[in-house]
Design a protein around this nucleic acid. Sequence first.
RNA 1: GGCCCUAUCGUCUAGCGGUUAGGACACCGGCCUUUCACGCCGGCAACACGGGUUCGAUUCCCGUUGGGGUCACCA
Length: 519
Amino acid sequence: MAVRTRFAPSPTGYLHIGGVRTALFNWLFARKHGGQFILRIDDTDAGRNVESALAPILHGLTWLGIDWDEGPDATGTPNGYFQSQRLEQYQKAVRKLLASGHAYRDYAKTEELQAEREAAEKAKETFVYSRTWMAETDADAARFEAEGRAKVVRLKMPREGKLVLQDHIRGQVEFEWANEQDHVIQRADGTCLYHLANVVDDFDFQISHVIRAEEHLSNTPRQVFILEALGYPRPEYAHLPFVAEPGSKNKLSKRKLDKYLKNKDFAQVNEHGRKIAEAMHLEVAAETFNPVIVDFYEQVGYLPDAIINYLVLLGWSLDDKTETFTRQEMIEHFSLERVNKAPASFDPKKLMSVQDRYMQQLPPKQKVAMVLPYLQRAGLATDPPPCTIGPVLMQIVTAAGDRIKTAGDILDYADFFTADDQLTYDEAAFDKRIRQAPEAKTLLSGFRDALKNVEPFTADVLEKTLHDFIAKEGIAANQIVHALRIAVTGKAVGFGLFDILAILGRERALARLEGALLH
RNA sequence: GGCCCUAUCGUCUAGCGGUUAGGACACCGGCCUUUCACGCCGGCAACACGGGUUCGAUUCCCGUUGGGGUCACCA
């Protein structure tokens, strides 16, 4: 049997990290078995802004390299893979269910139903609808309608026996039919509900394996009832544990950002990204720009491979050792049987460390290409870029080494791209290392003079120059090194001092020293 | 509350009857070093509890407790 899996997001306007994990597992499973991965849009009641609300989702999946074999195109133009376009199929299914007696017209009023519910609760019994307003014949229906009642269509669920489900992750799970309600499948206004639509779609698209979040496990009985009543084959099921909040077992939700920001690690990763976004003058609303949303990572300059690698480990593992996987390796090794049953909490710090590993592997040339747009967006480089920028960027990226953990980190070195007389200083550091350090200014000015004759102006020679200077002055390296760094970069931290000077070149280095002496 | 799922270091996890319970992230020391980052070395740290089954349970079974999900004319 051909393997066909699906991811069925509703157009919410953003791609959530938990959703990606679900999509990823579906994608992996399909790829592993040479099957198809289908993207279907659950927009049964979304309405107007579907296209714009869908764009970030399609874009996010594409960015992450989760490609779909069937579904909307990249622009999200509605086609057959939108529930809103398939209403006729759902109506047909309802008619069939009605005809076979698996569903009935119900004329109960909300208050009447509510009363029954409350009575059951009072008596501490499980609520079971009395079916008082059930119309199984046209005569009944006519009578209720004469009373001015509105109708919905309900499932006529079995009231005895049980459903035995084989789940690829949970194993055997059983449900008593008696605990199931006569769920509504068609509203009074004639539109259909999710579970019905879902089952019809899964059948029409020939989905072989339903791989979805655990929250749907309890919904499965009604879906199985519907599909069996319709004569459809039962797909295979795999209910994934959900992705939980950092440091807790609650389901991750984009609505509880305030709470996550109290988590130190989450706050730190968030802050890092926010700083970069601000440097690029990005307008970011906290609700859509934070580590729960995929877009955050793209904006900040993470690598899609790193995110995918982190995510595949969230609920799945190969063994006790392997942590790094190429896509091919993931596809080759993935199996539902090795998916964990318990929820896994999202750990942004660990994601960061995976990102760090991937970044370290990246050749400098690629880092340069990755980093350039960030300078442009921050207004530090023109577009198209000046042809001189390539070599400079290569020098910076090489000198910065592992310090550039995301592409946006290039902005830590923005001072290379600002005019020498526009340099801003970390004032606290400037105070400590220059204003209040004895002799600092004298030493800086002495070293400035020494720089005038350095030839060639390279890191090696500069290092030797400094050592000679230190020896001549009879001082410790500490007395000048920190002052020098602040004088030429404005900052107390950064990569190798001699690399900095060499990249700046003699003229700019001298200008900056001059500037610092006057500051 | 009913039903369902679930339970190994703070976090992600390995383990599928006998292990000094392993790895990774984080954390804490130390080394390297002009700062920061990287790297290296070392350290702290877990089988929720109670019954069974068994020669022997982290592992199998049953309870308890904890956590979560679900019970809509939402998806």
